[in-house]
């Protein structure tokens, strides 16, 4: 279980400090999938970075399984069981896909085990395992590998920042299954996905809407989802924000 208590994050601005996250309190319970959505610039990625320890909150606390991890480093949090897939995955010269998966797994992963993680994200493992995680990979390939590194860690809390971005429609269903399986396979674990995708919102247990750095709406999917896609204003906003979703409709 992950718990955020009155979390705030501000950065020095030109005249006054700019608050990017304002007093956010949130619980991601065990065995649950929480989806955070909201407009661009709302603070979603920043929230994810605060959870992973990449940014330090200016106020508030973070608890993992009841333990206060607010002061813990990125490495310590990773070891305690926080996994984080970046919105923009990092490229490495010379580090191969299998190397990255081995680092993620923290052990000598066999090639077939490593291939398992790649297959899970819909990649033909044989073609990729020895490839370098460098600029030669396409955006979508990189994104899948990023997700695979988090799967390889078996985290207690997995945070995925817009995992669907760049993933083609045909693999989308596969990705959804990956998240569902992940939720089932690790008991006591929880998943937090940042997404604009209706199909991902659809598998959420709970939905959080983050706007201007604060929680605008929060609750069970059945309560929140209709209010998001029901109103014409929201549809308009979603259309603007979700070109991928529009594409999905066209293909449906």
């Amino acid at each position: 279980m992950l718990e955020l208590k009155h979390l705030s994050f501000e950065v020095p601005g030109e005249e006054e400090a700019k608050e990017i996250i304002r007093d956010v309190s949130l619980v991601v319970p065990d065995d649950k999938l929480v989806v955070v959505t909201g407009p661009n610039g709302g603070g979603k990625s920043t929230l994810a970075k605060l959870i992973a320890g990449i940014e330090k909150p200016t106020a508030g606390q973070i608890f993992l399984g009841g333990e206060d991890i607010t002061e813990k480093s990125v490495t310590e949090r990773a070891k305690l069981g926080i996994g984080f897939a970046f919105q923009q995955p990092v490229r490495f010269k010379g580090i191969r896909v299998i190397d990255l998966l081995r680092i993620a797994a923290g052990k000598k992963l066999s090639v077939s085990d490593a291939c398992g993680y790649l297959s899970a994200v819909g990649m033909c493992a044989r073609d990729y395992i020895k490839r370098e995680v460098n600029a030669s990979l396409s955006g979508g390939e990189l994104k899948r590998i990023e997700i695979a590194t988090v799967l390889a860690r078996n985290p207690l809390v997995s945070v995925f920042d817009e995992p669907e971005a760049g993933i083609d429609l045909w693999s989308f269903q596969n990705l959804i299954e990956v998240f569902e399986k992940l939720r089932e396979s690790i008991s006591g674990s929880s998943i937090l996905i940042i997404s604009h995708q209706e199909r991902i919102l659809n598998i959420a247990d709970e939905i959080v809407v983050l706007k201007n750095g604060t929680i605008d709406k929060q609750g069970p999917r059945d309560e929140i989802l209709p209010s998001l896609i029901g109103t014409s204003a929201a549809v308009e906003e979603c259309r603007r924000l979700m070109p991928a979703a529009k594409g999905a409709e066209n293909h449906a």
Binding site: T75, A78, F92, R96, E132
Partner: peptide
């Protein structure tokens, strides 16, 4: 930072990046 989120310390991360490079 990416390698630290995979559980490496900063020094270990540097080592891996250089080895790969």
């Amino acid at each position: 930072i990416k390698l630290m989120t995979l559980g490496l310390t900063e020094a270990e991360a540097e080592e891996q990046i250089i080895n790969g490079f």
